[in-house]
Amino acid sequence: MSETENKQTHNQSRRNFLKNSGLTVGGLIVGGAIGRIISMKPNSTPTTTQPVETHQMANYNEALQFFTRKEDFEALAAATEVIFPEDENGLGAIGLGAPYYIDKQLATPWGRNADDYMIRPFKNGQTPLTRGDIMLQGVRKINEVSQKTHNALFNTLSEEEQVAILQEFEGGTVEMAYVSSTSFFALLRQLTLEGCYCDPMYGGNKNMEGWKMKEWPGAQMSHADVADASDFVKKEPKSLSDHM
């Protein structure tokens, strides 16, 4: 698959997502209308019949804070999608926003291990690298292995080829500096799952689609009503934005 085709697939899945969920675009228009009503002064009556201007709120959140090279981020995105692929159950990691989630997380103090003990010496396999260092080295290594074995960037490979490469990383056979490829893969997998199932305020789990797939109700205030229920009770998920 060429890079362009892959991008098309990516965009295609986004379009499907918008189409399938059916509420994102509508929801934004409603939001604009509510905003207009609230801003109207009491007792004010529109004096003309000018068409009302509605604002579609664009999403400016999907840009890079941590990664700097396009091919690094594309390798990351492709790897997350292999770990958590789109299927008949619903969206995959890319559709859920996991790659941008990971980028944002690595730009936080957590990505720099700010609260961890990072004082030398590092012995017995402990790594001196920060999480950001590990992820950056790892995604570059993924492309390096991909170039060496297939003479192409990772995101352009077939799914089987991608799986085989990630299995090598998971198995620890890829040589990395100051960290094992197993540790890198574990971090990549953990961050991917976080990006699929985190509260949507972090930039992943878009529209709570990850939670919906898992029938996880999210940040509910109470489950006392179903604590002794005899059957499964499906609840529509709520996010932390409901707590504001």
Binding site: V82, I83, F84, P85, D87, N89, G92, V163, L166, E170, R189, T192, M213, K214
Partner: peptide, 12 residues
């Protein structure tokens, strides 16, 4: 497997 197609399908 703890990731990939089979993994994603199993929790459901």
């Amino acid at each position: 497997s703890s990731w990939g197609k089979e993994f994603k399908n199993s929790p459901f």
